[in-house]
Design a protein around this nucleic acid. Structure first.
Lengths: 324, 324
DNA sequence: GCGGGGGCCGTGACCGGTCACGGCCGGGGG
DNA sequence: CCCCCGGCCGTGACCGGTCACGGCCCCCGC
């Protein structure tokens, strides 16, 4: 392991050429003869030269890394979202640096701000505060529409997604709806799930509140059935709870989806692995990542960006599998 | 949105001082009066100045970002590993950029190499090939011991971990062991699971092979019991399959862990959420991340690094919950 | 009155690349 | 024979910060 990094000057000296010629060789540029290029490349090889990324970016002024802020990878939804972003950004040759808001969102964003060209993710802090702290830094908020100039967003159209789901369920014969809500909603204002569900169903429906876990889902369906045995369709707060619910139904000897339909929210691919395979209102992480990337591209292009907020919406759509 | 980035020179000019004074103000350095500092900071605020990270790193020569290569976030184990790395690196003020080897490991590593100061992760490529391509770049292989000079590793001591697990199980009364193996082992040579399990058990035990999913786990326990009804302990290839197995046992009316003990492999926190809570041979992702970080620190320190490979081992340890 | 030290600030070089430009040389057309 | 052009290569400036150093001024002590 060499003590000091070998620079382009070292290579140039060793190969008996100028720095510029080394650059030409490395970057496949014109104005260099075949043999010179080969000689330089051989020298590069021998010296183990790796160009300094900071120097490159400094002179090229090209932008390429975006920070993603999520809650935690231990939540499968966030993991899947991260997966979507990796794929999307990888496709565009951008780098993804991830941060977890577990130990202080502000700190993480701050540390990240020095390293990335844009930040996208689940952000709780007051928008105006963020906008003030990181003026000039492109920021995209996920799930909720941004209301502050300079902060953009890709929002989820809960209202339409849930309404579509309910009417599709009705078409399949659902009549008595119920919901297993989560006890302590995460700070990101996940309330819309329940609100729009009740709106779409029209009449007030039975709702129980349980802990966000598989066990909570199992408890949920039991409590639900206790209150109203004629329920034929259950929406769970998320896929994990929905999985618990189908498991609970199974224990209770209730056929899913024949006597009771169960649908989750998230659209986790994990839902493919259970039996019956879980039907779920997908939060479309791939689409979210795609739209975010589009906004980013627009911002990076440096073209005429309205001084307000760029917003794109994706509507959740149910992926029909077996449980409903 | 300003058309061009505002630089330190702009700030200096606007505040009527030199660049160096601006630096002093920004970085809380000495040799600057209170009032000058305040004036400069106000100018910074007004102009929306953000220092260029590339310029900073170029002149400071500090290293700070490491790339993590995993299979996919859709595999909960990788997600948990990523989580552990985010936490570990965040603690050390290093940045984490992640890459997924789904669409071409070589491409991802290549793209990453230009952006990070070290690479750690699950790597399949021939080691010597990698070493040749990225000489000088610190590389840490996960799970498997590196055999090529210049490539380091933190390996999993499957042998000891599994042996300890088996003897602990024996102490609890287990006598007839069985295993639900995975049909198509991932390329990373996951074979050790079965091999060391059979070694530890001593006598040949019943093994069935199923698909890597919850449903596969359920099938597995059914098939296992068909072959040998007296089985009292089952090891599943991973936690997902183990969850399927306990679910399947439940369906069959078999008490877990009373008549049959079930343990998974991974140590997913997801196992906390099911009922009964899953006992699992934890792959200790936090420890793995920690050891990797230690190696990284040693490498970055620039001290005397042996020309061979740095290797640390972590032994899987079972987290006892309810299923065994 | 003079030397020295500390507070405060500015200048030039440098980090490691890239870019714009200019020079040299050989060959072909007028 | 001259000129021009294209292939090939090198030089200086620059990207936007930081670092080492030096200068100025004021105050204090002898």
């Amino acid at each position: 392991m060499q003590s000091r990094r070998v620079t382009i000057r070292d290579v140039a000296h060793a190969a008996g050429v100028s720095r510029q010629t080394v650059t030409r060789a490395i970057n496949d540029m014109a104005d260099i003869s075949r043999e010179t290029r080969e000689r330089v490349m051989k020298t590069v090889e021998e010296l183990g030269y790796r160009p300094n990324r900071f120097a490159i970016e400094l002179s090229r002024q090209r932008t390429l890394s975006v920070g993603l802020i999520i809650g935690t990878f231990r939540n499968p939804y966030y993991a899947q979202l991260a997966d979507a972003f990796v794929n999307e950004l990888q496709r565009r040759d951008w780098q993804l640096v991830v941060g977890t808001s577990e130990r202080g969102e502000a700190e993480v964003i701050g540390a990240m701000a020095a390293q990335v060209d844009a930040i996208v993710g689940y952000i709780d802090q007051a928008e105006d505060e963020i906008a003030a702290t990181f003026r000039g830094m492109p920021i995209i908020r996920l799930e909720h529409r941004a209301t502050t100039a300079g902060i953009h967003s890709v929002e989820l159209d809960w209202e339409r997604g849930i309404a579509d789901m309910v009417s599709a369920l009705r078409a399949k014969g659902s009549r008595r709806f119920a919901m297993i809500d989560a006890a302590a909603p995460e700070p990101h204002g996940l309330a819309p799930r329940r609100r729009f569900f009740e709106d779409a169903v029209g009449e007030p429906c039975t709702v129980v509140t349980e802990t966000q876990s598989i066990a909570g889902g199992a408890d949920g369906i039991r409590n639900l059935l206790e209150r109203d045995p004629r329920i034929d369709t259950v929406l769970a707060f998320n896929d994990l709870m929905a999985m618990g619910a189908v498991q609970g139904a199974h224990t209770l000897g209730i056929a899913v989806p024949d006597t009771i339909r169960i649908v989750g929210i998230d659209g986790l691919s994990l839902g493919e692995a259970v039996s019956p395979r879980l039907t779920s209102l997908s939060l479309e992480s791939a689409a979210v990542a795609g739209e975010a990337a589009e906004i980013l591209a627009q911002l990076f292009a440096g073209g005429p960006v309205p001084d307000g907020s760029l917003t794109r919406a994706v509507t959740p759509v149910v992926v029909w599998r077996e449980s409903a």
